[in-house]
């Protein structure tokens, strides 16, 4: 079972190490981890996809909460949130296959962001299954390199980090 966790953390050196170190020493499996600063420069958001049953998820959330630099941790379910991943895929092409690849890119509403005589770099954004489908379709042309950001996710609707932190500070 795969769970997406959103953590709002103090934007300080070492925080990411604390989070990733916690995962490795507690034997939690990270599928992906994405981190970046939020609309508030003092706060970063870490999106972690973790594999495990509900007991594992509960421990992950509780252990993360114990880290002093973590302001808030929550699970984002597929119902209450939207998630996206971006991938760059370098595909081998020649004059015979280039147009076919471009058609696939078109159908997926992806983009070509680099072109050479023997390769293309495709930029695709979507949920996990879309990126996987894209990868699979392109694989028969020969994928030379691939990089993906890992999932990033946000709560749907009016729930915001700002609101969560304000609530936290009132306690």
């Amino acid at each position: 079972m795969r769970h997406t966790i959103a953590a709002l953390v103090e934007n300080r050196p070492g925080v990411l190490t604390k989070v990733s170190g916690l995962f490795s020493r507690r034997r939690f499996n990270i599928e992906s981890l994405a981190v970046g600063v939020t609309e508030r420069p003092d706060i970063s958001r870490i999106t972690i996809v973790v594999a495990g049953d509900s007991t594992v998820l509960e421990q992950v959330l509780k252990q993360l909460n114990k880290l002093i630099d973590i302001i808030h941790v929550t699970e984002l379910s597929s119902k209450n949130s939207v998630s996206r991943e971006l991938a760059l895929i370098k595909v081998a092409v020649d004059s015979g296959t280039r147009s076919e690849v471009m058609q696939i890119v078109d159908v997926f509403r992806a983009k070509i962001i680099d072109v050479t005589t023997d390769s293309l770099i495709v930029e695709v954004t979507g949920d996990r299954s879309k990126v996987a489908a894209m990868e699979q379709l392109l694989s028969r042309f020969g994928i030379k390199e691939l990089v993906r950001t890992g999932d990033i996710a946000l709560h749907r609707g009016s729930v915001t980090a700002e609101a969560i932190i304000a609530q936290q500070s009132d306690l």
Partner: peptide, 14 residues
């Protein structure tokens, strides 16, 4: 030492 003691402190500072 902050790296080394990360898993054995409640918190640490440099």
């Amino acid at each position: 030492i902050t790296g080394i003691t990360m898993p054995i402190t409640k918190h640490n500072y440099l």
